[in-house]
């Protein structure tokens, strides 16, 4: 057990090494600046390495097994409705509180106010940001739900992804310019570090539990939907308001 953790620590250190090297080389050789606050940086590096090692250990003990056993339990229970409600709540619940999304939504509200799309008062901006957050959360919930239906039915992934891309392109043509960059970025920020392993394990677990599905071809793809639908929904939000 001890030995395994030490190994994990070493692994995490080598995972993080490239970042330290890039930052160090640019600081010292390209920008020719001294490295400030050496104690802070050393403590920070120790924290990052320790944190990554703990996270990966915990992942295999908790998030993966939880996602998989729940997938099996739902498959055995044979209740499609509850599975879909679970899928939607997982997507919606984890996204609504996502800090990266909160930051993006506030930024978007500021841009909208400067562009004169909404009034430049605090309450209007807050309403706009809140509305945007719930739009994205709803779209992620919808994405996980759709992805679960796909796994159950065994549809090929690209049957849904390609129409999604076409949807993004069509929306881009009509959406206001100011929202496009934010909409595209919102696709990438919605899926947090804790949600991803859970959702992946859920998809793979479902695909293994349902006969006739292959965990490799059918199990992945939930995250892909969760990063595609927010783009479409955010552009729609920008058009309506």
């Amino acid at each position: 057990m001890k030995n395994k953790f030490v190994q994990q620590l070493l692994g995490s250190f080598s995972d993080l090494l490239p970042i330290f090297v890039v930052i160090f080389v640019f600081q010292v050789f390209i920008l020719r600046q001294p490295v400030p606050n050496l104690t802070d940086i050393t403590i920070g590096i120790i924290f990052v390495v320790l944190g990554l090692a703990l996270f990966i250990q915990g992942l295999e003990k908790s998030l993966f097994p939880i996602g998989e056993t729940m997938a099996y339990a739902f498959a055995k229970k044979n209740s499609l409705l509850w599975l879909l409600i679970f899928a939607f709540s997982l997507g919606f619940g984890t996204t609504a509180a996502e800090p990266a999304l909160i930051a993006v939504a506030d930024e978007a509200a500021r841009i909208a106010a400067e562009g004169g799309m909404i009034g430049n008062t605090l309450s209007e901006k807050n309403n706009y940001a809140l509305g945007l957050r719930f739009t994205v959360a709803f779209s992620v919930g919808f994405a996980i739900l759709l992805g679960v239906i796909r796994i159950i039915r065994g549809w090929p992934l690209h049957y849904l992804i390609i129409p999604g891309y076409i949807g993004v392109v069509i929306m881009t043509a009509f959406a206001p310019d100011t929202i496009i960059g934010i909409a595209y970025d919102s696709g990438g920020v919605t899926t947090s570090t804790i949600t991803v392993p859970l959702v992946t394990a859920l998809g793979v677990g479902l695909a293994s539990a349902i006969s006739g599905r292959n965990p490799m071809t059918d199990g992945f793809g939930l995250i892909a939907f969760a990063s595609l639908t927010p783009m479409i929904f955010v552009m729609a939000y920008g058009m309506i308001l």
Partner: peptide, 28 residues
Amino acid sequence: SLMIGMIYVILGMSFFLVGLDKALFPLG
């Protein structure tokens, strides 16, 4: 085991974020 794993995940994330904030983000 699930509880221990969850505690690892939460502690790990916190160490990771504080460390990034101390070592990498300001410099980056």
